[in-house]
């Protein structure tokens, strides 16, 4: 997508949401939803329309774990690292995922199939280890279940 197209789409999003009380997070979510990440070209547009400095918009975007500065892989697998899942073997599961995919957390496989990310609690603490696979919740994920999920993703 060209820089112009990004700017145009961003303008449309900001125009739609700017009247909200505290509009910046909803705007950043909508921009990420539109592009799959928050493109650098979008930031000056948001800043200008909200009468903020670029630094302020960048500061907000970079504060939150959710906002990406580059596209994710075709699939995103988030593994819970929190205590309740650790009590059910989340650490071993994470090690298995990293070894199988050949990536660390926050990285994407060379094929571009899967981005692996940590998440701190999905509220599935009585059926851990838990994962969020392309936005869908999965509970009691053991190595075999994870292998099945990753195989279906071609990774």
């Amino acid at each position: 997508m060209t820089a112009n197209a990004v700017a145009q789409r961003t303008d449309d999003i900001v125009d739609e949401l700017a009247t909200l009380e505290g509009p910046l997070l909803p705007i950043l979510h909508a921009v990420q939803h539109a592009f799959g990440f928050v493109p650098q070209e979008a930031l000056p547009r948001i800043a200008e329309k909200l009468n903020l400095s670029r630094a302020e918009v960048h500061g907000v975007m970079s504060f939150y774990h959710d906002f990406r500065t580059e596209p994710a892989g075709r699939h995103v697998v988030k593994l819970c690292r929190a205590e309740a899942c650790q009590a059910q073997g989340a650490d071993a599961l994470a090690a298995h995922a990293k070894a199988r995919l050949g990536v660390d957390f926050h990285e994407t496989t060379a094929s571009g199939a899967v981005t692996l990310e940590p998440v701190f609690c999905l509220g599935l603490c009585a059926c851990g280890p838990a994962a969020l696979v392309d936005g869908k919740v999965v509970g009691r994920v053991d190595a075999a279940r994870l292998d099945q999920i990753l195989s279906e993703m071609g990774a």
Binding site: E21, G22, P23, L24, L25, L28, H29, H65, D66
Partner: peptide
């Protein structure tokens, strides 16, 4: 909707986040 920051469960962080 939040954006993946644990500290936003603290009420004043939450208010800042809500304000954008």
């Amino acid at each position: 909707v939040g954006a993946g920051a644990y500290v936003c469960g603290e009420e004043t962080s939450l208010l800042n986040s809500l304000e954008g």
